[in-house]
Simulated assay, not measured.
Amino acid sequence: MAPFKQENQSAVSVFLVVGLSDVAGPHIFLFLLFLCIYLITLGGNLVILSVISYDRRLRTPMYFFLANLSVIDIIFSSVTVPKLLFILVTAQRSMSFHGCVTQLSFFQFFVVAECYLLAVMAYDRYVAICFPLNYCLIMSQSLRCRLVVVCWACGLVNSLVQAFSISHLDFCGPNVVDHFFCDVTPLFKLSCSDTRVSETIFLLVVAVAGMGPLTFILVTYGHIILAITRITSSHGRYKTFSTCASHFTVVALYYGSGIFSYIWPTSTYAMNKDVKVVAVLYTVMTPMLNPIIYSLRNREVKQALKNAVGRRK
């Protein structure tokens, strides 16, 4: 996926990924903890995919987007967690230059694809609440597919841009990536090239691909809240807002931690433990929590799960 520089002048061919701790040696407790989180992530999202495929009542636009979110979360967590587990259990932190850029490109692919997919899901809730009579007509199958393709395409474009930008930098040493995976910001700090152009590109991507969808989500929810306030019945207001409560919770978790990781630490700051902890939230914890949040707060998903378990029994 990553377009590498043909004549790489970098002296560094191998990076050392620090991981979550500066202390050398295996960390069995952390390994078992993140292994459990990873298995729950895979299991939870696979259950969501199975339930949506199994129950015909869930074959609606909202669950179509939720199924795509589960697919993204499975791959998104698989980009970083397996390597982290390997580092924790073996204490072998080396990663080739090409391997590092490849991990970075896949990470940037799915982090942006999820941003746009969350914006699409917000639009879906907006149409369902503000235009309920025309919901099925507006959110047609062709439109759903086009929106999802756009989300994945935006992720691919971002991935290629970031990989191209990083692979054309020179790395003369040191080679220690002070993070638990290869990402753009820590690699900027290791480059001996002039990174101003690359950093400008990165900030533009953060503004367009990160803050753009967030702004759209906030504006959309403004219209949703305005529409809900016009409902006379308090029960009706609660029932209507509950249909988008899960999505709002996921957006808050994802963007809250993501903004702290990408906006707060500029290139002049050193990557510290606080940023690593917050990065764990949106790269590891959020993909695990998404299926749990949607399962606990959604009656249709819970009922479909009960029906599936009951039929198996």
Rank of each mutant, 00 (worst) to 15 (best):
R196G: 03
S142T: 12
H235Y: 15
N158L: 00
R146Y: 12
S167T: 07
L117K: 01
C192K: 11
I231R: 11
V149L: 11
L203G: 02
I224Y: 12
P186E: 10
L187E: 04
F216W: 08
L160R: 02
C154K: 00
T215F: 15
T229Y: 10
S193K: 08
S167M: 03
S234V: 09
I228K: 12
H179W: 15
F131M: 14
C172I: 05
R146W: 12
H235V: 14
I201W: 03
F181C: 07
A153R: 04
L133K: 15
D183E: 13
W152F: 14
G155C: 02
R237Y: 10
D170V: 04
R230H: 15
C145M: 12
C154N: 01
V219G: 01
D124P: 03
A119Q: 06
T229E: 10
R146V: 12
S234E: 11
L169V: 01
L117E: 01
F202K: 01
C192A: 13
T185S: 12
A153E: 03
L214Q: 06
C151A: 10
A128S: 14
V206S: 09
L143S: 02
H168R: 03
A227G: 13
C244E: 04
L118P: 03
E199N: 04
G210Y: 05
L156D: 01
L214K: 06
V177L: 09
I166V: 14
Q141C: 07
M121N: 08
V177I: 15
K189T: 13
C151W: 02
E199S: 01
C244S: 15
T229L: 11
G173H: 06
D170M: 04
V157P: 01
Q141A: 07
V161R: 00
L169E: 00
F180P: 05
G212E: 04
G222C: 09
Y238F: 10
E199K: 02
F216R: 05
L143V: 05
L137T: 13
K189V: 14
F188L: 12
I217Q: 03
P213I: 04
L147P: 07
V157H: 00
A122V: 09
C172H: 05
C145R: 14
C136L: 15
A209E: 06
V161P: 00
T220W: 04
Y126R: 09
K239A: 14
E199R: 02
T232L: 13
V197T: 03
I217E: 04
L204S: 11
L203R: 09
G173K: 07
V177W: 03
F188M: 11
R125N: 08
P213E: 06
S193Y: 08
T229S: 12
M211Q: 08
H168D: 02
I225K: 14
I224W: 13
S140L: 10
L218I: 15
L204C: 14
T215R: 08
C154F: 01
H179T: 09
V219W: 09
S198H: 00
A122H: 07
T185E: 10
F216D: 04
L218M: 13
F188P: 05
